[in-house]
Amino acid sequence: MLDVQHISKTFNAGTINEKKAVIDLSLHLNPGDFVTVIGGNGAGKSTLLNAIAGTWPVDSGRIVIDDVDVTALPDFKRAPLIGRVFQDPMLGTAPDMWLEENLALALRRGQSRGLKWGIKKEERELFREKLATLGLGLEDRMTTKVGLLSGGQRQAVTLLMASLKQPKLLLLDEHTAALDPATAAKVLELSDQIVTENNLTTLMITHNMKDAIAIGNRLIMMHQGRIILDIAGDEKKNLTVKNLLDKFSAKAGVEEETDSVLLS
């Protein structure tokens, strides 16, 4: 479903701030894979996600999503294939537009937008139904400006928007990091529910090792721009934070002990 082949990305190349964010990285996701990505600060997690989303072009390598080579396409041209939830709850929704208008925009993700009405009557029914599944009472607030909703509500809405038109690939970029623990747990549960129901191929970055272990069928750990651990199946099911940290230390070397503190 997703095929990342030997991509590299260096920021500020040739300057004193040069940062090799991702180095010769390859990753293959099968349809229905739910992969969690962990790693310390600067490990290259977000760079990987942004490379796949098309925020900027990669320096080398190839990215294929659902048999479409998207390497040369900017973010908005990859939109038909990708659903996205950002770390910042403010980024995923248009604050001055109504809830139903936001959803209508999302329903047309990647389609050409003409001079037909922006929302159809039957779509409102669909939105009401879908909002009800969030269990936040938002189905009665369809003409509320999204900016008036809380961060958690907005993140839940963004999640719904990302999956409203079924994406080939769902990208979740630390989407619970900016929320309080209770709300984060709720949004995470919703994510799991939406991914499972729609059988979405998903790549989720998280800072929380417990979440990374509990959710999904595969876990990868990044370090200094490379994937250093890739654990799937039964091995992942039996994983604990303790032995994940041990594996990390073994791979990254003892001198990286400080990073493991960052992770836990």
Binding site: P74, D75, F76, A79, L91, R109, R113, G118
Partner: peptide, 27 residues
């Protein structure tokens, strides 16, 4: 116009560029 698909995309562009691009709008 502002009520059409194109008009909604136009409003979204000014309101949230990052979201608009993620939804396939050429901002």
């Amino acid at each position: 116009y502002l009520g059409t698909e194109h008009g909604c995309a136009f409003r979204a562009t000014g309101n949230n560029g990052a979201m608009s691009r993620a939804l396939g709008i050429n901002t």
